[in-house]
């Protein structure tokens, strides 16, 4: 487990303010499971609330991190999490082998594949019972994936299959390119961050937090 100081944003009456957070690489399984326990009830309650109101329910409402941790027994998978003010604010599971870039100029070269990434339900508009509490969770976790990609000699390349409701975030906030729906994976759109785009993404985030 490695802990790195980072920053999220916290909602205030006037808007958002920076708040210290910790990025955890290789989150212990018991910590992931504790986060799931803390998230599960709010995720389900939020989904029921939205459904009762006739609103769109987040596509990941049924996720259960306890069913994903078995993958961490394999070398192929690593995890990351963001902790802030004593609570886990986001989790990510990545795969390091078996996926490669689909677009030129690096087509066929390895990348870090984001298998799952989720922000705590109280940070997700709609799922939260009130306004979302913390921001920038997804951004910090995608940054962590880029850093892992550099550590693995993948030049910052990152890829994933996006749930439709998350596509805008990957396109507009992260600068990922879409290869369109993948008929081999539930027709979810394939997105990837090229080496060049990952530099711009990290640079843009540095500027945003200054």
């Amino acid at each position: 487990m490695k802990c790195i100081s980072t920053e999220l944003t916290r909602r205030t009456d006037d808007g958002w303010e920076p708040v210290a957070a910790t990025l955890i690489i290789d989150v212990p399984v018991d910590v992931i499971e504790a986060a799931e326990i803390a998230w599960a009830v709010q995720r389900l309650e939020g989904a029921r609330r939205l459904q009762a109101a006739g609103s769109a329910v987040p596509e990941h409402w049924h996720w259960d991190w306890k069913n994903k941790t078995h993958k961490l027994q394999l070398l192929n998978y690593r995890s990351a999490g963001i902790e802030c003010e004593g609570e886990m604010q986001g989790l990510m599971l990545v795969s390091l082998a078996g996926h490669s870039t689909r677009t030129p100029p690096d087509k066929g070269k390895p990348l870090v594949y984001i298998d799952y990434v989720e922000s705590a339900p109280w940070n997700v508009k709609g799922l939260a019972n009130g306004p979302p509490r913390y921001g920038a969770v997804g951004t910090r976790l995608v940054e962590a994936a880029v850093q892992l990609s550099h550590e693995e000699e993948f030049s910052g390349r990152v890829g994933l299959h996006a749930l439709p409701q998350a596509s805008r975030f990957y396109e507009q906030t992260c600068g990922m390119l879409s290869d369109g729906p993948d008929s081999h994976y539930h027709n979810l759109c394939w997105y990837e961050l090229t080496s060049q785009a990952s530099q711009e993404f990290l640079g843009g985030q540095d500027n945003a937090t200054q």
Binding site: L74, L75, N76, L96, A97, G98, D106, G108, K109, P110, E152, E153, S155
Partner: peptide, 18 residues
């Protein structure tokens, strides 16, 4: 793959184990 030989071997081990 634009990797060092060590990185290729590491990838191979991960895939083989998986």
């Amino acid at each position: 793959k634009d990797l060092s030989k060590t990185a290729v071997v590491r990838q191979a081990i991960r895939l083989y184990q998986l």
